[in-house]
């Protein structure tokens, strides 16, 4: 490495598959929120009527296609929980090991501005890890309820979705989770930016390039 390579070292953190997963997941979430809210409240219905605009049909179609991508992204992420690299595996960041539980406490102090000390981890900190595990589990619920609503005549998806009750209960869960993902996206972008400013490691660029930068000997 040239230039300032003395102070920082470049570490390969995120595999190609994880980065593809992240952007498909992120993009599909934005599309799903926008189209999902429209389907919930089709506010253009009367003034677009009679002008050959199949607004609702198009919104539903986009929602379904984005839902397919969302599902595939979720499956890829769950695969990486077990077969990804060391930063991508679930036990690296889920608060289930003593190391991660300790990290969760220090991170919460760091986020509350109570301390400037924090662990330089190549992967996720345990606080982020917990929210990502939760998000993926909720994503599974979201796509199961979604498929339950989309294929009301398929015995497979009806069997799967009936865990959540009737179609209407599933619709309600699906709707509430839509808001979870909207809030998650806002919080996620805020905390990622906050971390990138407070502790410059190339956190944001790492999800494009796969590389993070750490002070030598700090990880």
């Amino acid at each position: 490495m040239a230039g300032h390579g003395k102070d920082y070292e470049k570490v390969y953190v995120w595999s190609v598959l994880l980065r593809v997963y992240h952007w498909v997941f992120a993009l599909s979430i934005f599309i799903l929120i926008a189209t999902g809210l429209y389907i919930n409240w089709p506010w253009t219905n009367t003034w677009m009527e009679g002008s050959h605009q199949w607004t609702m049909a198009i919104m539903r179609y986009i929602h379904y296609v984005a839902g397919m991508l969302f599902t595939m992204a979720t499956i890829a992420r769950i695969y990486l929980w077990f077969f990804g690299n060391k930063n991508e595996k679930v036990w690296d960041f889920a608060p289930i090991t003593p190391r991660n539980i300790k990290n969760m406490i220090t991170t919460s102090f760091y986020y509350a501005y109570l301390t400037d000390n924090h662990e330089h981890r190549t992967g996720h900190n345990a606080m982020a890890g917990m929210s990502y595990v939760m998000t993926i589990l909720l994503a599974v619920i979201q796509f199961i309820t979604g498929f339950y609503l989309l294929y009301p005549e398929s015995s497979f998806f009806v069997g799967l979705g009936s865990v959540f009750g009737t179609q209407q209960t599933a619709r309600f869960i699906h709707h509430i989770l839509n808001w979870y993902f909207a809030i998650f996206a806002a919080v996620h972008i805020y905390i990622a930016s906050w971390n990138d400013i407070r502790s410059p490691e190339g956190l944001i660029s790492s999800i494009f390039s796969g590389y993070k930068f750490f002070p030598k000997g700090h990880h």
Binding site: I58, Y61, Y64, V65, M68, T71, M72, I75, A76
Partner: peptide
């Protein structure tokens, strides 16, 4: 609205996406 129908078309894309994944 969508050639082949919204759900049928989305299902088709979903199957392809599953294959790619």
């Amino acid at each position: 609205p969508v050639n082949g129908g919204t759900i049928a078309n989305a299902t088709d894309i979903g199957k392809k996406a599953l294959g790619i994944t």
